[in-house]
Structure formats: C-alpha cells, structure tokens
Write a protein that binds this DNA or RNA. Structure first.
Length: 702
DNA sequence: GGGAGTAACCTTTTT
DNA sequence: GGTTACTCCC
C-alpha cells in the first residue's frame, strides 16, 4: 500500500522549504529543527539547489562557493551523491574543512601549539605537586636523573603492566630507588610518567622555532602527540577556534570565500564550532558583508556528549524554522516518539493513511535466554533490526564473543587502551580498523569468497598474484583443496592453506603460488613458516600500545610471551567469519540486522526490536532512571543531563521503526511509578516471564 | 571500622 | 583512563 499525503500537507511542506529559501535569499541566518524521519537531509539538499538556481552566476563571477558542513564522512558522501559533483559546492566534514582552512597558517599553528604545550606543562606541575612522596623528596633533581635514564625507563615500561608487587620488586632490584618511594606503586608510576612527558615536552618546546617544525593533524588516531607536533580532533578544534576568533583577516578570508554555510546535524557539532561561526558572522556584519549560516538538525537526537545540543541560547538572533511532519513512520510510531521526547514538539505523520503500525512493550525479569526464539515467534524476518545497548551483546548474538574477549586481553585493547576495541576492532569504517586486524579481515574475506559458491572466479583470483594466467583447471583444483582443509581453527587453517600445492604440469608458464595469497594479505616476505611470521606481526600489533614509550620493539624476540597470541590463533575460524559478517555493515533486507542503539542513528527499518537493560554506562539503573523520572520537572543539572541522554537514545532508537516496534525491557522488577510511566508512553506492558500471566501486567485502567 | 593501596571493571560513536 | 570493588592492615 502506498502512503498518501494530503494536498494540504504537500502545501505545508512546501511552505517550510519556502521559509528556508526566503531566509537564504535575505541572508537571514536560521536554524532548522526537524524530528526524526522528517527529511532533514532532503531539505538541506533543496536549500543547496535553491542557492545554485538563484546565485550561480554571482558565485562564479566572484569565485565564491557554498560550504556544506557535515559531521561524518558517511553524511558527506550521501550529500555528495544527492547533489552530484558541483564545483560551486564544497561538502566537507567539519574537521577536514577546518584543517584545510588553517593548515597552511603554520606560524599561527606553531604559536597555538606552544601555548598548548605550556598548558600541558602546567598540568604536569599540578599532578606532581599533588603526589606526596615526590613533593617530600629531598633531591628531586637527582631522582629525575635516575628515573629518566633510558635503561631505567626500559625496565619501568617493561614491568609497567605487571602486578604492583612484581613491579615494585623489579624497580627495587635496580638498587636505584629507595623502597619507601615505592609504597604506592601507582603514584610512583604517575610521577615517572609525568617527568618523562615533561622532559619530552620541554625538548619539543625548544625545537619549536626550527623551520622544519610543523604542526600536523592526524585524523586516524584520537590522541595528541604534542611532543611530535601531532594533534588530533579536539585539539584541532581548539587551535582553529583560537586562530579564527583572534584574527579578523582570517574571518574575512572565510566569508569572502564562503558566503553560504549550511551545517548538517548541528546537534552533534562541538560548541566551539558554533562559536567560530558566530564570530565570523559578527565580523561580517561589522564589515556589512552578506554572510549566511543555516543549521539543520534535531537536538533530541544528540546522543554524544560533545555535541552542542540545543541552539536557541547560542544563536539567539537566528530564525527558528521547524518541521513537524514525519515521512518515515506510521502514526503509531510517530505518536510514540513524540511521547518519548515529551517536549511538545508536535510531530505528526505526513500521511493520510499510514496507520497500521504496532508497538509492543515487554518486560522480562531475567536476561533473555534466546532472542532468536522471540524473533521467530513474532515472525519478523524481513527488513528488521535488533538494537542492543552493548557491543558485548551484539558479539554474543552474532557469535564472535570469544574473539572479542580474546582481543580485550591484549595490551593494545586493555587498560587505558580499552577504547581501541571500538575503533580498531568493531569499527564499521574499515579505514579506522587496526592494521593487523585489517589484514586478518582481508584473509577472512578471501576465505568467505572461496566458501561462497556465488563468488565469481575473479573475486577469488584477485587475491592471487599473477592470477591472469590461471587456468580453469587449476582454479577448480585450488578451490577443492581449500574446501577440504580440515582445521576449524584460524591458525591451523592458515597452516594448511600454506601447504597446498597445485600440480601444474600442463603449462609451465602458469605461475600460481598459493603462498602468494598469504604473502600478499599479511605482507610477509619469506617463503616459509607463514604462521610464525604472521604471529610475529600479530605480536607487533597487539602488544604495541602506541603510548610512545614503545618506540623500538627490538625487545628480545626470544623473550616474547606468545601464549595469548597462540590462543588467538586457536580461535575458531567461524568466529572470524561472524565478525567479518558484522563489520560488513551492508544492511540486509532479509534476515536480521544487529546494531547498537547508538549505531542505528540515521537508519530505518520496517521492524525494530529494542532490548533495554539497566547495567549500562557505569550505572545499574540506566533505563530505570528514565522511566522513573519521566515527566519529572525538578531535576538538578546533573540529573537532567543523565535523563536527557537516556531519553535521546530511546528517541533515536524508537524512531528507526516504520511499522512495528518491539521493546524488551530487562529489569528485575518494575517499580510502581516506573510501571505507570511506561504505561503512559507505551500503553500496555506484557511480561516475558514464563510463570506470569500477561494480565498481571496490564495497564492500571484495564 | 576506616584508610590506603590495588585489582577489576567498564557505554556508545565520530572526527 | 576513570570509577568502583575488594583486600589488607592498623
């Protein structure tokens, strides 16, 4: 059934776009708020097209461009796809753009960098002064000399991650450190690390005036390395902010070049970015130059801490434009998400007749034993997404749990590097994937293609050097041999694969080396003992924590503890295949898509199943807090932040559904007010507990 | 019982 | 890396 839009709503929608167009025409800055599924990106696209239709000649004659800022590369690509290539439109992520804009201002950047280093040195000073033993140290200078000695540091970092006792013993055995300084190991570590960075930063500072010194932006790693003049995302914004705010010439360069700036998903952009644009706008007004800023977004979908969220108090004189129509969902869903946001935004379905949606809320007092039996019971198998809070649970459902847990044992993913799991292992952006894991993924890609009967010959032979010369006979022989590999473990599998030999007596010039596959994928050079070489690479990757203390890794190779590496290669190949399936994020029309609630942002499905649980974000009542406090108006600032973050996440997740939405809430028992509020939002509460009749949970009225 | 030190545990996502 | 949970000792 096609959904129908009334004449009136078609008109209403057009009116909204006209409002935007008028603002653009008159250079009146605006912010456009539209709910989930309203078609924000479409409005943005139309706005760009409007400018192109009316101002192309003008832009061309003064060599100006339209600037469209997005938050993610994915969004950037989508917009580029929609508007097509056009030299008058620059579409860019905010970081990419700002870096392009200030990268060549090296003197200014170096200046910022020096300030940043000074700041950092100040922080180090504070840290040191807070630690008692160092403060009371009679001779700090000689202590410094002892611990900053390279040999000492080598030992220090070698034992850094060992238990406190082992670490203490190792340091004690050098005979250089008085035992009483080691009574608190973590403080000792803190002091030595602080002194080490202090030394490096001071060195960097004294080098900063050299000509070759350049500040560089590294977008692939979210960490500054100030002593090497490398900055990352947040620091880039800091520098850009300072440079632009304080330089009218730079501001003028900006608005002379880009008279129209449109910003997508404004709620996610950093507050500093808004302030940068505000300062440019102020100066353009001073100079009486036309300059337009338009924000497009939905503050209710701000689910990351850094985003600016609501704009009204930051851009007070901007025209607010709002769209209440929802183009995605059935009226049931639209009404539900309106209740979740509960701020009177007034969303409504744009359709006359899209009223066959369905919402069911289930409570379960125990963790679900089998999600799949729930799914099959509900007979949802098409265009469906299951949304879970944690990556752990996704790994479990997708059956690569052991792989995930093994990964977390390595230094690269444990301790302070805990967050690397997300970016380097679970990232659906292959560019961000860790280098060794990318090799593994590549290998799995090869296996998957060999195993898949639908693969073309080309898809498989792409992995083989000199593959153009392979005869069909040889190819079939090869596939057969690969498919008869017995080992179910990845290490064993690689081993057997490396041993495959293809008899090739017909054509002497056919150059087919099975080993070239492994050589290519894992960038190894010698021709034997593949698995050992690959394990060596694995070690280099998994044990390199990049905390810039492990610059050289020619640590005694014979001393390397390979036990975890070995158990990594003892994992079932199947787990790797499941992981591979998961990170290939292509949405499946049939079958079930798994995402985190966060990761579902921007997507849509006919059917959505959301599993909610309370242990999340270091809380034991993450979801409960929202249900208990729904409608509460007396929040402290902290409570309000907490409440909003759950609300926004639920809003994002629930608004993915077009037709059917199932919520499964896992919570030991429901409090009275919690139950009441859930009933207000979702109406009926059903129980998934086997021994409880549904009726016991019906809403109070019934 | 409390304080100090250590070990264990942890949310998501993007740039 | 930051917070919570445990353990040890006085």
């Amino acid at each position: 059934m096609t959904q129908l839009i009334s004449e009136e709503n078609i008109k209403n929608e057009r009116k909204i776009q006209n409002q935007i167009n008028e603002s653009i025409k008159d250079f009146k800055c605006f912010y456009f708020d539209a709910g989930a599924g309203a078609g924000k990106t479409y409005s943005l696209q139309k706005s760009i097209e409007y400018i192109l239709e009316n101002r192309t000649d003008e832009l061309l004659s003064v060599k100006q461009k339209i600037l469209c800022i997005t938050y993610t590369n994915a969004a950037k690509n989508e917009i580029l796809e929609r508007i097509g290539q056009n030299s008058l439109v620059v579409v860019s992520t905010i970081h990419e753009f700002l870096w392009g804009f200030i990268a060549h201002q090296q003197p200014l950047l170096i200046n910022e960098h020096k300030k940043k280093i000074e700041e950092e040195l100040g922080k180090i000073d504070d840290t040191l002064s807070e630690i008692k033993f160092y403060n009371e140290c009679d001779d700090q200078e000689s202590f410094k000399q002892i611990v900053l000695n390279q040999e000492f540091l080598d030992l220090f970092y070698q034992y850094y991650s060992e238990s406190a006792t082992d670490f203490r013993d190792a340091i004690k055995n050098t005979g250089k450190i008085d035992e009483k300084l080691l009574s608190n190991v973590s403080n000792f570590k803190k002091v030595v690390s602080a002194l080490r960075s202090e030394q490096k930063l001071k060195e960097a500072l004294s080098n900063s005036n050299k000509r070759k010194c350049k500040v560089r932006y590294n977008p692939t790693r979210n960490r500054d390395n100030l002593s090497l003049f490398i900055i990352s995302h947040d620091t880039l914004l800091d520098y850009a902010y300072s440079i632009i705010i304080n330089n009218n010439i730079v501001k003028r360069l900006f608005f002379d070049k880009y008279p129209y700036v449109l910003i997508d998903e404004y709620q996610d952009t950093d507050r500093k970015v808004v302030e940068i644009f505000n300062s440019i706008l102020d100066y353009s007004r001073e100079r009486e130059t036309n300059f337009l800023i338009g924000y497009f977004g939905d503050y209710m979908q701000n689910i990351y801490d850094k985003g600016v969220g609501k704009l009204d108090t930051i851009v007070e004189d901007f025209i607010p434009i709002k769209k209440v129509f929802n183009r995605r969902s059935s009226s049931q869903i639209v009404e539900l998400i309106e209740r979740i946001r509960n701020d009177g935004f007034g969303q409504k379905s744009i359709y006359k007749n899209f009223k066959d949606g369905k919402i069911q809320f289930y409570h379960s007092s125990l963790e679900l034993e089998s999600l799949s039996s729930f799914l099959s019971q509900k007979e949802i198998d098409k265009d469906c997404a299951v949304l879970l809070l944690k990556n752990d649970k996704i790994a479990k459902e997708r059956e690569f749990e052991n792989l995930l847990n093994k990964i977390r044992e390595f230094p690269r993913f444990s301790g302070g590097n805990y967050n690397n799991v997300g970016s380097e292992f679970l990232s659906n952006n292959l560019q961000n994937m860790g280098w060794f894991l990318r090799e593994v993924l590549n290998f799995i890609d090869f296996i998957a293609k060999v195993k898949n009967e639908d693969s073309t010959v080309r898809m498989v032979t792409n992995f083989i050097e000199g593959s153009t010369q392979i005869t069909y006979d040889v190819f079939i022989q090869f596939i057969k041999k690969v498919n008869s590999i017995k080992s179910t473990k990845i290490g064993g599998y690689i081993n057997e694969l490396g041993k495959i030999s293809i008899s090739n007596n017909k054509e002497t010039n056919t150059n087919f080396e099975v080993e070239s596959i492994l050589k290519n994928i894992f960038s190894i050079d010698s021709t034997n003992n593949y698995i050992e070489q690959i394990k060596k690479r694995a070690y280099d990757y998994f044990y390199f924590t990049s905390s810039d203390t492990f610059e050289d890794d020619d640590s005694n190779e014979s001393e390397r503890d390979m036990s975890i590496i070995n158990s990594f290669f003892d994992l079932e190949l199947k787990e790797f295949l499941c992981w591979y399936e998961y990170v290939q994020t292509d949405k499946k029309e049939t079958g079930i898509n798994y995402y985190t609630l966060h990761g579902s942002k921007g997507l849509e499905f006919d059917n959505v199943v959301i599993v909610l649980e309370n242990t999340f974000a270091n809380k034991k009542d993450y979801i409960q807090f929202f249900f208990e406090n729904y409608g509460n108006l007396n929040f402290t600032e902290e409570e309000s932040l907490r409440f909003n973050s759950v609300r926004n996440l639920l809003y994002v997740a629930c608004s993915r559904a077009r037709k059917k939405l199932y919520i499964i809430y896992i919570s030991e028992d429901l409090q009275q007010n919690e139950r009441q509020n859930i009933s207000v939002i979702f109406e009926e509460i059903k129980s998934l507990d086997p021994d409880i009749l549904d009726i016991a949970y019906d809403s109070p009225e019934s």
